[in-house]
Each structure stands twice: as C-alpha cells, then as structure tokens.
C-alpha cells in the first residue's frame, strides 16, 4: 500500500509540476464559467442560467473534453517510462508491476479529480449563487462531477492498456487519438447510420445495449436521464423511456469500463519482460 501511495503521490506532484493539473483545471473552469454565464446564445438571452441547464451543457462538453485530457495525460504512462529507461530502474526496486500500475492510475485519477472538482465546482457554485438551484439540481451537479471523473478514469484505463501493449510512445499517441475519435466522435454517427441503414432491424431491444458498449454514451445517459429536471432540459425524455437502465446499472457499466481495461493493461504489463 505504501508503495502504491509513493507512486501515486509522485504522479500527482509530476502533474502539478508540469502544469497538467493547472492547465486542465483552468480549461474546465473557463469552459464551465463560459457555459454558466454566456452560453445561452441559442435562447437569445444573456445572464446566469439555472444550475440544471449548466449541468446539461457541461455534460455535453465533458464528453468531448474529459476523454481527451485523460488520454493525453496517460498514453505514455508505461511505454514512455520504458522508452526513457526510468522503468528499468524502477522495476529493480521493491515494488511489483501491479503496484506501479495501480499507483500511477490512482495518481492520474487524482489529477483528473482535482481538475474536475475545482474547475466545475467553481463554475457550479457561481451558477448556483447567480441563478437558481434546487436540491435536485445540486444532486445532478454532484452526479456530473463524479461521473465526469469516472468517464475520465475509463479513458485512463484504455490509455494504460494501449501504453502497456505497444513498444513506442508515438504508437501509443496515435492509438490514443484513434480511441478518442472512434468512441467520442464516430461511434454515435455510426449508431445513427446503423439505425437508418438497417431499417429498424436494430430496434429498441438492441439499441440501448449498443449505448452501453461505449463509456461516453453511458456517461451521457447517466447525466441526461437520471434526473427529471435534467431530462426535460436535455431533450432526452424520449430516449430515456426506451433505455430502461437504472442509474445504478449505468454506474456499474461505467465501472466495468474502468476495471476491465485496467486488468488487461495489468496483464500486458506483468507479462512483458524488460
């Protein structure tokens, strides 16, 4: 446990030192504030919007941004250290590969958590003070923060899997960008194409499960369908009636998207010889 903490602590201080934490926090806070105060252009109004609306806008933004940040900070977590030669030395210390992997993962999770809690938290509090926020909106906002961190973790885990499987940093970077593109950009378009192309063969019994096959879609469902007031803002009321997943099911699915890739990463890492 101590070894895991040492590695995690080092990863966080590295993140603070190389400005990843600062950059991610400022980015999330800046976009959060922008959406809270200015982003009502579609409705033609200017001013602070209700917290529930902020949650909707922020979750749409997070789907794009959080996976990208997560992949960028962690794609070289293993292959980068191997390439620079730091890993060889680290492995001669009294620490197991599993401890290294878990420690690094927790450290990166810490970086994402700091950025999300500070960045979105500030924007959320500002929106709540300026606009109106009921208890359910606060719940939805807390849900947003926790699920955003979990979304980040699932992409961290995918990046670790890549990082443990390739031999060169540049390959890992390429695959990481590919993952982002495939899961965040292409997947929904592909689903839509599939729905139209198969002319109803993919029906409402299969479709919801296809959404579970992508952590970004699980996150979307988790944020846009879990609370009544959010549903009405997000235009997901129709979808949520079809997708009969309880929030707990969605949370478990998202956790599976963290644990499974991480286990695969661990297997690759432990089997590799330096």
């Amino acid at each position: 446990m101590k070894a895991i903490c040492i590695i995690a602590g080092k990863e966080i201080t590295d993140g603070l030192r190389n400005r990843w934490v600062l950059g991610a926090t400022l980015l999330l806070a800046g976009l959060g504030f922008a959406l809270a105060f200015l982003g009502s252009a579609p409705s033609g109004q200017l001013g602070v919007k209700p917290l529930a609306v902020v949650v909707v806008s922020l979750s749409s933004l997070t789907i794009f941004l959080m996976p990208l940040i997560a992949l960028l900070i962690s794609y070289d977590a293993i292959v980068g250290e191997v390439e620079r030669g730091c890993m060889l030395l680290l492995l001669t210390y009294p620490i197991t590969k599993a401890q290294i992997l878990v420690g690094k993962f927790l450290g990166h999770t810490g970086i994402l958590a700091i950025a999300t809690i500070v960045g979105y938290g500030a924007a959320g509090i500002a929106a709540a003070i300026g606009g109106d926020a009921d208890a359910q909106s606060w719940q939805a906002f807390a849900n947003l923060i926790v699920s955003s961190i979990l979304l980040g973790c699932s992409f961290l885990a995918l990046a670790y899997w890549v990082s443990a499987s390739v031999r060169e940093r540049s390959t890992a970077a390429g695959i990481a960008i590919g993952i982002w593109f495939a899961l965040v950009v292409i997947y929904d378009l592909m689903l839509m194409g599939l729905l139209i192309g198969t002319k109803g063969w993919i029906d409402e019994t299969i479709f919801p499960y296809l959404l579970l096959a992508n952590p970004a879609d699980i996150y979307r469902l988790l944020n846009l369908t879990a609370f009544d007031n959010i549903r009405s803002f997000s235009g997901m009321a129709g979808l949520s009636e079809q997708a009969q997943f309880a929030p707990i099911t969605l949370a478990v699915a998202l956790l599976a998207w963290i644990i499974v890739p991480l286990l695969l990463a661990g297997r690759r890492f432990i089997r590799s010889e330096s």
């Binding site: 080092k10 030669g85 030395l89």
Partner: peptide
Amino acid sequence: FLPENVAFHDELTGAQMLRFYANLK
C-alpha cells in the same frame, strides 16, 4: 543497480529524486 544510460524524471531536483527512491526502498 546502476543501469547503463541511467534516466531520471528530469523535472525533479536531485534531492527529490533520491528521496523518492529512498522511500520506495
């Protein structure tokens, strides 16, 4: 162990680096 072409995390100071390894060991 001192590897050939030893590599460290460049952002740390020498003292911090050594403390990190001392903690691990």
